[in-house]
Design a protein around this nucleic acid. Structure first.
Length: 548
RNA sequence: GCGCCUGUAGCUCAGUCGGAUAGAGCACCUGCCUUCUAAGCAGGUUGUCGCUGGUUCGAUUCCAGCCAGGCGCACCA
């Protein structure tokens, strides 16, 4: 679906190209004309600085260039007036009833309004969380649980074929320590020095013994506890409304021969070498700080070997782009992962993307809660949900760009006030639902057929239409930039515009006043707004309540 | 030491490809519910966009250097 702004932008580009062809302007046309929505309402519905950009090569004053384009732009369909302002901005005002046609577009597209095709045909593997199955998911995983899931939804909405994966690190020393720790807890022995100390280990021990009292070896404890812990992670994520297409076990990578296969592929590409008894990948060929060991001197495969094999496996399963969402404490992996892609013969600037999320601090009772596994002050995802609810937790985690460190204040999230922006947005949705219930009760008809765009002439209506028109662009940019927070910020803006409309534009007839076309038209506008809020919240995995 | 991220209002933070008077919420004041959900609206107050240079018609945005904070630099997983 192309938005009104996109069409307008393309049409202006044609005009610029034509003007250059006629020799009225010298220079080269840009690939694309950017249309901004001016902050100031006096600057029209859309504005472009194209004249300022072309002025230099044209050898003319910016306002002269703008003057050349002005006439043709004002002839474009749907444009009501064009003004030149300031140093040479071209401000475009759209025909209002033409703009109001958008309501029909939204209502007929329904859930699909906002979806696009910018990523059509692209298969994306989205890997996030990927926690060890040796403990509950905690706050460190939470940001990605929300943002990763939302990004998956946003990418899908842009036409990509998305596979969300959770990589289970179910192999290696940590798993063995985990097994030994549970066994120690079950048999009343001291937990190993470098083992897992948390209270949950004791719970696991109890559960393991309950199902199998005769269990004895640490391997058996490990396997039994692993299954319980993994199930618990799955169930918590399920309540958090985060879903995965594939839970990919590191073990399966080894069992299936994928690791051997990956090594072979890297050898073929010529980046594998032996030194000091170990087998290495020469990642320094591709701007890594140092080369990385694949097979240790003692013959064991490193975790890095699994990583490389997993990447190759993802690509061979058909993913064009592999996105990794990692915490800031893993940012040292960026170069080596990119190097892996390059070593496998791929383009590290296309086939692999690594998103680094800064850590989340948490405040409660006015103090920062220090997270420490040893001190037992880890806050789990389950606890967070219990304290503030799924919607508030998800929304808050998503509304900030991931490269800013964020502070979550538990006390604020518990409040049902504006400090908690999720309510502001949800309230707008619920408010519209209430209005439409009343509309239905008064038997006011608002259909696609009887919608009359000419009724919507109020400034508030116009402003609301403008905001609704932005939605497809917002979704497209959120997908392109991998930044789902843009959806949240947009929804806050849209909710604000709606509340303003609501305050100034009465939807229902007053008292005994008979229903008129304006009431139907406004009801349609409300329905369109509700649809967009609902679509947006859906991309965030946050509920859109009918009543609050 | 090297690398990545961050520094915008009293607080928490938006502001992608450089654009017009730098925004929002909270906090603080003032109005607005005997007609749609006041979890709302309208208005007021709040800034050396970390610092210094550079690029140009124009820099919070791009570049360089510096200062401050966070996080990393394993034949661990």
């Amino acid at each position: 679906m192309s938005s009104l702004a996109d069409e307008l932008s393309a049409q202006i580009l044609e005009l610029v190209v034509a003007a250059i062809a006629r020799g009225e302007i010298t220079g080269t046309a840009p690939d694309l004309i950017t249309l901004d929505r001016p902050k100031n309402r006096d600057h029209g519905d859309y504005a472009t600085s194209i004249a300022l950009q072309l002025a230099k090569s044209a050898g003319k004053q910016p306002r002269e260039v703008a003057e050349i384009l002005k006439g043709a732009i004002s002839q474009l369909p749907g444009v009501s007036s064009v003004d030149i302002a300031g140093p040479g901005f071209i401000n475009i005002t759209l025909n209002r009833s033409n703009q109001a046609e958008l309501v029909r577009t939204i209502l007929s597209a329904g859930k699909n309004y906002g979806s696009g095709s910018s990523l059509k045909g692209v298969a994306i593997n989205l890997e996030f969380i990927s926690a060890n199955p040796t403990g509950p998911l905690h706050l460190g995983h939470t940001r990605w649980a929300a943002v990763g899931d939302a990004l998956g939804r946003v990418l899908s909405a842009s036409g990509a074929k998305v596979s969300r994966e959770f990589y289970i690190n179910d192999r290696g020393r940590q798993m063995d320590l985990f097994g030994q720790s549970v066994q120690a807890a079950a048999t009343g022995q001291a937990i190993p020095e470098d083992g897992y100390q948390g209270e949950y280990i004791k719970d696991l021990a109890v559960q393991v013994l309950a199902t199998n009292p005769s269990i004895s070896t640490s391997e058996d404890f490990r396997e039994a506890a692993y299954r319980i812990q993994l199930d618990e992670q799955k169930s918590v994520l399920d309540t958090f409304k985060t879903h995965f297409d594939t839970w990919f076990s590191e073990r399966s990578l080894h069992d299936s021969g994928a690791v051997e296969h990956g090594l072979l592929k890297l050898r073929e590409q010529g980046h594998v070498f032996e030194s000091e008894g170990a087998i290495w990948l020469r990642t320094t060929d591709f701007s890594d700080d140092k080369d990385r060991v694949l097979v240790k001197e003692n013959g064991e495969l490193t975790y890095f070997a699994s990583d490389t094999a997993y990447y190759i496996n993802k690509r061979e399963r058909g993913s064009d782009i592999c996105i990794y969402m990692l915490g800031a404490d893993h940012h040292g992996y960026v170069n080596r992962l990119r190097a892996v892609a390059a070593c496998a013969g791929d383009n590290p600037d296309y086939n692999i993307e690594i998103l680094i999320g800064q850590l989340v601090k948490i405040m409660e009772g006015g103090e920062e809660v220090k997270l420490s596994k040893r001190a037992g002050t880890i806050i789990t995802l389950a606890e967070l949900v219990e304290k503030v609810g799924v919607d508030a937790a998800r929304y808050t985690l998503i509304r900030y760009p991931v490269d800013t460190p964020m502070v979550m204040d538990i006390d604020v999230l518990r409040k049902n006030t504006n400090e908690n922006p999720v309510y502001y947005v949800q309230y707008a949705h619920a408010r519209i639902a209430a209005v439409l219930r009343n509309v239905a009760e008064l038997k006011i008809i608002y259909t696609l057929e009887n919608f009359d765009p000419a009724q919507l002439t109020h400034d508030r209506e116009n402003e609301l239409l403008g905001a609704l028109a932005e939605y497809p662009r917002i979704v497209a940019s959120a997908a392109e930039l991998r930044e789902p927070h843009r959806i949240a910020r947009y929804l806050e803006e849209l909710a604000g515009v709606y509340h303003g409309f609501y305050a100034d534009c009465r939807v229902l007839p007053m008292g005994d006043e008979p229903a008129a076309p304006i009431h139907s038209a406004r009801a349609s506008l409300c329905a369109a707004t509700m649809q967009v809020i609902s679509n947006g919240l859906d991309l965030l995995g946050v509920s859109a309540p009918e009543r609050m």
